[in-house]
Simulated assay, not measured.
Amino acid sequence: MGIKQEKEAMVQEIKDKLTKAQTVIMADYRGLTVEEDTELRRKFREAGVEYKVLKNTLTSIAAKEAGIEGLDAYLAGPTSFAFGYDDATAPARILNDFAKDHKKLELKGGLVQGKLFNVDNVKELATIPPREVLIAKLLGSFKAPMSNFAYLVNAIKEKKEQEA
């Protein structure tokens, strides 16, 4: 396989990642130590997030082929990409939390369901709890009225039994 075919295959792979991921968060990772990078990659693995360093020119071509406009503005300098396929907030949350303790990591922006997000939008996205937490809260809010209703029905039953 020649260099041209390799690059075309890489562009196709990047295009697939950009279109399949719910969320893609970009960061400048310059200055991180090997240990810090290893720690960050471990956090991503645990959350099911794919983390890659990609060539900006190939990413730019892939984005254009995928119909994503404006991504080039975020592709200056070394860029790492966190792809979230299942949990849309995980890449933003992990990078944002990591950047708080590791000042050398700098958020650049993101792509959420095909829409570009600036750094402020990414930080806002990072505050949304994981999907499991949101589901648990939702189920909890359903449970409270039902348990109150069950308590009320039981109280009515006990009152009727006392009257009888």
Rank of each mutant, 00 (worst) to 15 (best):
M1V: 10
M1G: 12
G2T: 04
I3M: 04
K4R: 14
K7M: 04
A9S: 12
V11I: 15
I14R: 03
V24A: 05
M26C: 04
M26D: 13
Y29H: 12
Y29K: 11
R30P: 02
L32R: 06
T33R: 01
T38H: 04
E39I: 08
E39L: 11
L40T: 01
R42K: 13
F44H: 08
E46Q: 14
G48Y: 07
E50Y: 11
Y51P: 03
Y51H: 09
V53R: 12
L54D: 06
T57M: 03
L58M: 08
L58Q: 04
S60D: 11
K64N: 08
A66Q: 01
A66R: 00
I68L: 02
D72F: 03
A73D: 12
Y74L: 14
Y74S: 06
L75A: 06
L75F: 09
L75W: 04
P78K: 00
T79S: 10
T89P: 00
T89E: 00
P91F: 00
N96H: 07
F98I: 01
K100H: 03
K100T: 13
K108C: 06
K108W: 05
V112K: 14
Q113H: 09
G114M: 05
L116M: 13
L116S: 01
N118A: 03
V119P: 07
N121E: 12
V122G: 07
E124H: 15
L125F: 04
L125W: 06
P129V: 08
P130V: 00
V133P: 03
L134V: 11
K137S: 13
K137I: 13
L139M: 15
G140W: 09
S141H: 10
K143F: 12
M146A: 13
M146S: 12
S147D: 15
S147L: 14
S147R: 05
N148W: 05
F149D: 09
V153L: 15
K157L: 05
K160F: 00
Q162V: 11
